Simulated assay, not measured.
Amino acid sequence: MTRPLTALLCCALALAAAGCGIRPTGVTDGGTAPSGISQGMRIYFASDNGPRGVPRPGVTIDELNDVFKLLIAGPTAEERADGLANLVHMEENFSATADHGNVTVNAPGYFTASPQDPATGQLVCTLARAEVLLHGTRPDKVQVTIVGEDGRAGPYQCQQFLRR
């Protein structure tokens, strides 16, 4: 019993002395650490990789319905050149209300039959961002339901539409 125990102890000491084989490097600067949710309003537009948020510095919103004006304005010329497009077409006035992170969109003329379409992603992510800013709801707790021409769809969360 002494011989196996001695052999095991020798192996453990040899491994500890050898290290893991990774050589030390100098200090690498990883940049500034993220500090939580980015500040300010972001509008989401369609891209080849799903909805992509673009900042709107200096833009403040007082209610969820302000989001629709920002979406109607569409992407800037630079954003369009970068491949972004607005696929949300508002035939009539859309309106939104929120209750503890549950956002309901009244969207006349909007068809909800295709729940994962890019326009729905734009709408959900933009309204979710606005809900976070207006009411301090955690982003992972915001749920958006769309009441459209053909019924009700959702609730959705923005992360359902974001590709990794």
Rank of each mutant, 00 (worst) to 15 (best):
A119R: 12
A73Q: 13
E91H: 13
T112F: 07
A16E: 02
G26I: 00
D117M: 09
H135L: 01
E63Y: 00
Y156S: 09
G136L: 06
L15N: 02
C20V: 00
A96T: 10
E149I: 05
L8A: 15
V142M: 04
G19N: 03
G19L: 03
A18W: 08
D66M: 09
L127G: 11
L9M: 12
E91K: 15
T25F: 01
I72A: 15
E79L: 04
P51E: 10
V88R: 10
D48N: 07
D66I: 08
C158V: 08
E131I: 01
T25R: 04
D48P: 03
P57L: 01
C125E: 14
E131P: 06
Q159E: 14
G19Y: 07
S38F: 03
E149H: 13
P118C: 01
A77C: 01
H89F: 13
G58P: 07
L8S: 07
G19Q: 02
V124M: 12
T145D: 11
A85E: 14
G74T: 02
L15H: 03
G109E: 10
S38G: 09
G151R: 12
P139W: 03
A128C: 05
I22A: 08
L84P: 02
N106L: 13
Q157A: 13
L9F: 08
V88M: 10
G136M: 06
P115F: 10
I37Y: 08
D99A: 12
C11A: 15
T97N: 10
R52N: 06
M90S: 10
T60Y: 01
D117P: 03
L84C: 07
G40R: 12
S35C: 04
G83F: 01
G21S: 03
R23G: 02
L87G: 05
A18Q: 09
P108Q: 12
T120G: 07
M1V: 07
L134W: 06
V147W: 02
F68M: 12
A77Y: 01
F45H: 01
S114F: 11
C158Y: 04
L13R: 05
L127Q: 11
A46F: 05
T6P: 00
D140H: 11
F68V: 12
L133Q: 14
L15M: 09
P118N: 08
G148A: 09
N93C: 06
D29A: 08
S47V: 03
S35W: 02
Q159S: 14
N86G: 07
V103W: 06
G74C: 09
G36N: 08
L70C: 11
C20W: 01
A14T: 03
T104G: 05
A14L: 15
G148Q: 05
E79V: 02
R152D: 09
S35D: 11
G83K: 05
P155E: 07
L71R: 11
P57C: 07
L5S: 07
V88E: 09
A77H: 06
Y110K: 03
A119L: 09
L162R: 13
T76G: 08
T60A: 13
C11D: 01
A73M: 07
R56L: 13
L127I: 10
R3N: 02
N65C: 12
D117H: 08
N93I: 04
L123Y: 06
S47G: 04
R138M: 08
R138I: 00
D66W: 03
I146V: 15
D29L: 06
A12D: 01
H135A: 13
